[in-house]
Design a protein around this nucleic acid. Sequence first.
DNA 1: TGATCATATGCAACTTAGTTGCATTTGTCA
DNA 2: TGACAAATGCAACTAAGTTGCATATGATCA
Lengths: 159, 159
Amino acid sequence: MRASAVVKNLKDKGFRITPIRKQIIEILSEDRGPLTSLDILTIIHKTGKKVNESTHDHAIGVSSCIRFARCNKTTVYRQIAFLLEQEILEEINLGEGKNRYDLVENKAHHHHLTCNNCGVIKDLPLEDNDFLQSIEKNTNFRIQKHSLELFGLCLGCQK
Amino acid sequence: MRASAVVKNLKDKGFRITPIRKQIIEILSEDRGPLTSLDILTIIHKTGKKVNESTHDHAIGVSSCIRFARCNKTTVYRQIAFLLEQEILEEINLGEGKNRYDLVENKAHHHHLTCNNCGVIKDLPLEDNDFLQSIEKNTNFRIQKHSLELFGLCLGCQK
DNA sequence: TGATCATATGCAACTTAGTTGCATTTGTCA
DNA sequence: TGACAAATGCAACTAAGTTGCATATGATCA
């Protein structure tokens, strides 16, 4: 798994490895597609270790309750910011009014194909260097970043 | 000006022409670049007719005050939704956490070049039909919509 | 021209994504 | 193990956008 390599790399650079940081890196390397901060938080809550807590609320007869792993949304946002800074993550905007995040691939820069029906998001590797160079020539802009997002129907949803 | 043609077209289709609807169409046809809902609201407030209102607040000695044209943000959002439905506007997302809107051009579909330094947004007309067709062939997706946004430095900001 | 009515508007309250300040906790290293 | 910088939790906040409902108004017709 790529997660352990990322963790090792961060450790070597002198950054702390906390359980939450590690878990977020693991979640993002499981190839679930680009995730929102809420996706990440929900996965942490669902997959985290269960904790038995004794309570003494005799009034409603509850003697113990089960809770899932705790993590605050602020922490998720801060981890995302950290991982973006370290260029481990990239931010993806599909016009949904929220951001998604994906591990930066070692392979070539890629784009996304989103199915308007089922919502599946597929990677789309593209050789676009020539394309960008010709735009630079024609416009006198120096291009630093670009985003190309495609929306349509996947094969299964065309029927 | 294109605004009057748009207004006439809406009237012919049986839609009401209210002062706010008209003003929003005019603002968007002034070629200020893609605007946010707040941009539109602010322009309405600044350029609207002044209204003298008599007050009788003797306690603080104010006998009249000047107010700018009123328009509620809800109204702007609803007009945007209406104009999107009529395919008069298109929604543009530059990853800012908010949407921008631009009149749909009769000319070819185009993209945007945003300067990371001064924020200027330039139109970029592109012939991308072949490009999209080859992606359809390679992926089996039927592409319905795409967004290509480029970010970098305009000529003036490269120095 | 004035009455009618569907449509447009204003307002307040709400939702959701994301941010900030501050007190507390915890990984790391000596 | 103790110390301390970095990470976390929590509450309160901001900003974009939405919803319900009462009121106002543009277009039409008598």
